[in-house]
Amino acid sequence: MEDIPLQKIAISGPTLASMIQRVSSSLADSDGLLFGHVSLITSSILSDDDTTDPATSILVANVTGFICSGAPHSFSDTLARFDSAQQAPGGTHLIGWFSGRRRSRLQPSMREFAVTASISADPMLSFPVLSAASWRFSPRVFFIFSTPPAVGQGTTIHTHEYRAYQYHPARETFEPKSVSVVNIGPGFRGHYGNFSPKSPFPLLACESSGSMVMQEDMEVETLSVLAPATKDKELDLIVEDFQISDLGRLMGTEAAAYTAGLEEMYEKMLGKINTLTRQVEKSSARVIELENLNSKLRAAVAGIKKAADA
C-alpha cells in the first residue's frame, strides 16, 4: 500500500491564498510544511459488497494548514535531510511540503527532490488514511510556487504560478496532480467537514485591567514577566460558571442587576482581547525589527550595498 496514487489535492481558497501571500512577501525564496489529512472517498455506486475497493474509491489529500518560515532551507540541513522537530497541529498530519522560488522555472529542483525523498522515506511520519485505517500514507505532497523567470522588472502585474505533485519513491518521480481549490458555495458543501478550523487559542498569559486599557499610555509588560493577573482569574471564574440558560435572567425582575454583571464581564473580555492584540502588535514589530537587522547583516556578508537603506 505504499505507492497509492492520489486522485487530487484539495486545498481551501484562503489557505492557498495565504500561502501565496507568505511566499511572495518573504525576502527571498522560502519553504514550509503542509498539514492536513488524506481521505479515501468511496464513490456512491451502491454495492452489496462493503469492502473498500481501490478501483471505486479515490484518495484525496486535503491541505488544511501550513507553516512558512519565510526563508529557504528552513527545516532541512545542507544535505536536504528533513529535521522532524516540527509538530503537526492537533488532528492533522504532515502531508508534504512546499517551496517558493522566485523567478525560476516551475520544475522541482535538485534539492527539492532530495528533501521530498527524505520526508517520504521517514517511517515515523507516515499516518493512517481517514476512513481506511489499514492504509498508511507518508508525506509525499509537494507544492512549488514561482513567478515567471523572464519578466521585466518593475512590472505592475504580479503573476504567481504553482504546481502540485505527488512523489513516487519507487519510480523516483514527481507526478503532477490537479489541485482542487475549495471555496464556499453550494458546489463545495461536501467538503466543509474537511476544513473545520482546528487551531487552538494561543496560550498566552496576559493582564487585563478593565476599562483602563483604553488609555493610550498604558504600560504593557513583556510576555515573560507577565504573571496571570488576579482579575484575569476572576474573569476565568465568571466564565467558568456561566451558562447560556443564565441569559434568561436578562428579562424579568432581575434584569437590571444582572445586566450590570454581564456588562462587566464583557468589558473584562474586551480588555483581555485588547491586551492580547497589543502584545501581538508589539511582538510583531519586534520580530520585524530583528528580521530587518538580520537581513542587513546578511547583505553585509553577501557584499551587497543596499539601496533601500538610504
Binding site: 525576502l27 527571498a28 525564496d29 526563508a71 529557504p72 532551507h73 545542507t78 522560488r101 525560476s104 522555472r105 520544475q107 522541482p108 529542483s109 535538485m110 534539492r111 527539492e112 537581513s295 546578511r298 547583505a299 556578508v301 553577501a302 551587497i304
Partner: peptide, 13 residues
C-alpha cells in the same frame, strides 16, 4: 539566494 549567502545554490535541470 542573495538574501541568504551562506546557503549553497540549488540547481534546476
Amino acid at each position: 539566494n542573495a538574501e541568504f549567502p551562506l546557503s549553497a545554490p540549488d540547481v534546476v535541470f
